[in-house]
C-alpha cells in the first residue's frame, strides 16, 4: 500500500483517535456503554489498521511478537490476580469489597483493574490473530 497516499494520510489522522477512543471506552465502562471487551477490540483495530496500511514489518516493530504474546497471558493473570488479592485480603475470590477501605472504592478499583485485564488480553489476541493470518504465505 506504499502508493496509496490518501489511505496513508487518513490512517495517520484516524489511528490516534481510534486508540484514544479505545482508552475512553476502557476506562469509561463504569459510566457508559463499553468495557474491556469492546475497548480491546477497538484498540486492536487501531493497530490492525496500521498494519494494513503501513505493512506488517512496521506493525511488528510497533508491536513485537514477544510483547503481544506476553500481553495475551498478562491480561488473564491480572484478572485472576485480582481474585487472589481479594482472597489474601480476607474476602472471597473476586470479591472486590475488601480491595479498599470502603466497599464502593473497592468495587470501583476491582472493576477497573479487571476490565483492564480483559482489555489487554482481547487487544493482544486481536493483533496476534491478525498478524498470524496476514503473515501467512500462500
Amino acid at each position: 500500500m506504499k502508493h496509496h497516499l490518501i489511505l496513508r494520510v487518513i490512517a495517520k489522522l484516524t489511528i490516534p483517535g481510534i486508540l484514544l477512543f479505545g482508552l475512553y471506552v476502557q476506562f469509561h465502562g463504569d459510566y457508559g456503554p463499553g468495557g474491556g471487551f469492546q475497548a480491546g477490540v477497538i484498540f486492536g483495530a487501531g493497530f490492525i489498521l496500521y498494519g494494513l496500511v503501513f505493512g506488517l514489518q512496521n506493525l511488528r516493530r510497533v508491536a513485537p511478537a514477544s510483547v503481544t504474546t506476553t500481553f495475551i497471558a498478562l491480561g488473564v493473570l491480572i484478572f485472576a490476580g485480582v481474585g487472589i488479592a481479594s482472597q489474601l485480603l480476607g474476602g472471597n475470590y473476586l470479591d472486590y469489597d475488601v480491595l479498599a477501605a470502603d466497599p464502593h472504592a473497592g468495587q470501583h478499583l476491582g472493576i477497573l483493574v479487571v476490565e483492564l485485564g480483559v482489555g489487554i488480553t482481547v487487544a493482544a489476541v486481536m493483533i496476534t490473530i491478525f498478524m498470524t493470518f496476514a503473515g501467512r504465505e500462500r
Binding site: G29, D30, Y31, G32, P33, G35, G36, Y96, H104, A105, Q107, H108, G110, I111, V114, E115
Partner: peptide, 13 residues
C-alpha cells in the same frame, strides 16, 4: 458497586 452502568456491574462484579 457504585457503577452507574449496570451492565458493567453485572459483567465485572
Amino acid at each position: 458497586t457504585g457503577a452507574p452502568n449496570v451492565v458493567t456491574a453485572v459483567l465485572a462484579s
